[in-house]
Design a protein around this nucleic acid. Structure first.
Length: 423
RNA sequence: AGAGAGGUGGCCGAGUGGUCGAAGGCGCACGCCUGGAAAGUGUGUAUUCCGUUAUCGCGGAAUCGAGGGUUCGAAUCCCUUCCUCUCUGCCA
C-alpha cells in the first residue's frame, strides 16, 4: 500500500498516476484522506482521555500509599467516566482504523513515470529483442507433442493422480527440470544473490505482506484447516523474511534467490492458451528478490534485467522484453518488464519472466524499513523477478531446438543435464 | 499428539499489582585518559502513532510473543492463541 505521508501530501499526483492504470475508483483517495483526518482527530481525543486517567491512576497510587483511602476512593469514582469514554473512543478508533486499512489496501501502486499508457497487453511496449527465430519448417511440433514423442512429460498421468495442470516429468524430462533449476540457482548466486530454501506454505500475514491477500485470494490454494496458503511464487516467503524489520543502510542491498514450486489455482483460465506447459497449477520457478535503498532501486531493476538477459542468451532462446503499460501492470507493481520467449512451433510469445519494482508499496505493508546514514527511518524498495520460470523455458527449448535428430540442449546446460540431445 | 517449563530492549538477564519503557551486565556510539592501543572511566543507546516545530527538540498515547479480560492502575492476575525448550508417543 501507498505510504500515508505520500497520500496526504500528493493526492492529486497519485490520482494522476492511478489514471494511467485505468483505476476506476480515484475517489478512494479522497475517502481515505477524509477517514485519515477523522482517525487523527479521534486519536488525539483518546490520547487526551487516557492521559487524564493515567494521571488519576498515579494520584490514586500515591494517596493509597500515604493512607488517604477516602480521597483515593473519591478519585476512583471520577475515573469511571473517563473509563467509559475511553472505551467508546477506543472502539470507534479501532473501527475507523479498520476502515482506513481497508480503503488503503484497495488502492493499487502508482505507476512509474515511464510507464506507457494503455489498456491491455496489446499496448505493452517492446523495448528489446535478441536471438534469432529458427526456421523449423511446417512439421515443427509444439512441445506437448514433443513431450509425448520423447517421453518427457506425461500430462495424463498428472491428471490421474491430481488433476489437470499438474504434469509429471519423466526421464530426461525430469532431468532437464533439475538441470535448469540448478543452472538458474548457480547463475543467480554467482551474480550475488544469496540462496535460500523456504517453506512452500505461508500464513495469512505473509500473504498480506506481499499483496496477494486480499486482492488475489481466489488465486491461491488455501489450507483452511491450518490457515495456510500454498505459495504462488517464492516472492512471498522470500520478501516476508523481512516483515517487521528495521534494517540499517549498511545491510542494503539484500539480494536473495530461491527455487520453489509455485501453486496457482488459475481460476477462470481456459482455451488453447493453457495447453501443455503454457499454464499450470504447479510449476517450478527460481526467483530473485532485492531490497534496496530508494535511490538505488531503479538501477537495481536494470541490473536484474541484464542478469536475465545473460541467462537467456546462454540458453540461446529468441526473446523480447516488454515494458508493461499502465493497464497491464499488476496491482502492487510500479514498473514491470516482461520477458517473453518465442515459441516457434506455437507461433507465439510466451512469458517466462516478469521483473518488477514495487517501490515502497510492499515494504509499507511489510513494515519493513531501514535507517539511513543519518539515522532517519525510510521505507525500503522491494524488487523481484523470475530467474527463471521453468515450464515455458522448457517449452521454448523443446520447440526451438528440435531437429530431425532430436532436441539439442544448449551448451551452457549440458554440464547440468549430462546429455547433449534428447532423442 | 500427551505432560511440564518458558517467551522481557541488539544480546544476556532482573522484575509477581502503583512513580517500570523497564535494574544490572554485554554489545554499540561519542568523550575523557594514553605517544598510540588495551584496560579504566563518563555520557548516551527501542519502536509505532498523534500533536507541536524551519531544525535540534518538546508534549501525549501505545508496545515486555500476539489478542482479549479483571482493576482507579497490569511486564506482573485471568482467558484464548502462536512460538521455543524438556520428557513421552509417532515418524521421514
Amino acid at each position: 500500500m501507498l505510504p500515508l505521508s505520500y497520500l496526504r501530501e500528493q493526492p492529486e499526483k497519485i490520482k494522476e498516476g492511478l489514471a494511467k492504470r485505468n483505476f476506476q475508483e480515484p475517489e478512494l483517495v479522497d475517502q481515505l484522506l477524509e477517514v485519515d483526518q477523522k482517525k487523527r482527530k479521534l486519536q488525539s481525543q483518546l490520547d487526551q482521555t487516557l492521559s487524564k486517567s493515567n494521571q488519576f491512576a498515579k494520584e490514586i497510587g500515591t494517596l493509597y500509599k500515604s493512607g488517604q483511602v477516602e480521597k483515593a476512593n473519591a478519585l476512583k469514582s471520577q475515573t469511571n467516566d473517563l473509563k467509559t469514554t475511553g472505551k467508546t473512543l477506543q472502539e470507534r478508533l479501532k473501527n475507523i482504523e479498520v476502515a482506513l486499512l481497508s480503503i488503503r489496501t484497495q488502492i493499487p501502486n502508482v505507476p512509474d513515470e515511464s510507464v506507457p499508457l494503455g489498456n491491455s497487453e496489446n499496448e505493452n511496449e517492446e523495448v528489446f529483442s535478441a536471438g534469432t527465430i529458427p526456421d523449423l519448417g511446417e512439421d515443427a511440433l509444439p512441445h506437448w507433442d514433443l513431450a509425448v514423442k520423447y517421453d518427457l512429460i506425461d500430462f495424463d498421468l498428472g491428471s490421474k493422480i491430481t488433476g489437470a495442470g499438474f504434469p509429471v516429468y519423466i526421464g530426461k524430462g525430469a532431468k532437464l527440470q533439475r538441470a535448469l533449476i540448478q543452472y538458474f540457482l548457480d547463475k543467480n548466486t554467482a551474480a550475488g544473490y544469496k540462496e535460500f530454501q523456504v517453506p512452500y506454505l505461508v500464513n495469512e500475514d505473509s500473504g498480506f505482506g506481499t499483496g496477494q491477500l486480499p486482492d488475489k485470494e481466489g488465486q491461491m490454494y488455501h489450507i483452511s484447516e491450518d490457515g495456510l496458503y500454498l505459495i504462488p511464487t517464492a516472492e512471498v516467503p522470500l520478501t516476508n523474511l523481512f516483515r517487521n524489520q528495521l534494517l540499517e543502510a549498511k545491510d542494503l542491498p539484500i539480494c536473495l534467490t530461491s527455487y520453489t514450486p509455485c501453486f496457482r489455482r488459475e481460476a477462470g483460465s481456459y482455451g488453447s492458451n493453457v495447453r501443455g506447459l503454457n499454464r499450470l497449477h504447479q510449476f517450478d520457478k527460481v526467483e530473485i528478490v532485492r531490497l534496496e535503498e530508494p535511490q538505488n532501486s531503479r538501477a537495481a531493476l536494470d541490473k536484474m534485467i541484464d542478469h536475465i538477459k545473460g541467462i537467456l542468451e546462454e540458453l540461446e532462446l529468441p526473446y523480447r522484453i516488454l515494458k508493461l503499460c499502465g493497464g497491464d501492470l499488476g496491482f502492487t507493481a510500479a514498473l514491470t518488464f516482461d520477458f517473453e520467449v518465442y515459441s516457434t512451433a506455437q507461433k507465439r510469445w510466451l512469458e517466462i519472466s516478469s521483473v518488477s519494482t514495487f517501490n515502497s508499496f510492499q515494504s509499507e505493508r511489510l513494515q519493513l524499513r531501514y535507517k539511513d546514514e543519518n539515522g532517519k527511518k525510510q521505507t525500503i524498495h522491494t524488487l523481484n523477478g523470475s530467474s527463471l520460470a521453468l515450464p515455458r523455458v522448457v517449452a521454448g527449448l523443446l520447440e526451438n531446438q528440435q531437429t530431425q535428430n532430436g532436441i539439442n540442449i544448449p551448451k551452457a546446460l549440458i554440464p547440468y543435464t549430462g546429455f547433449e540431445t534428447i532423442k
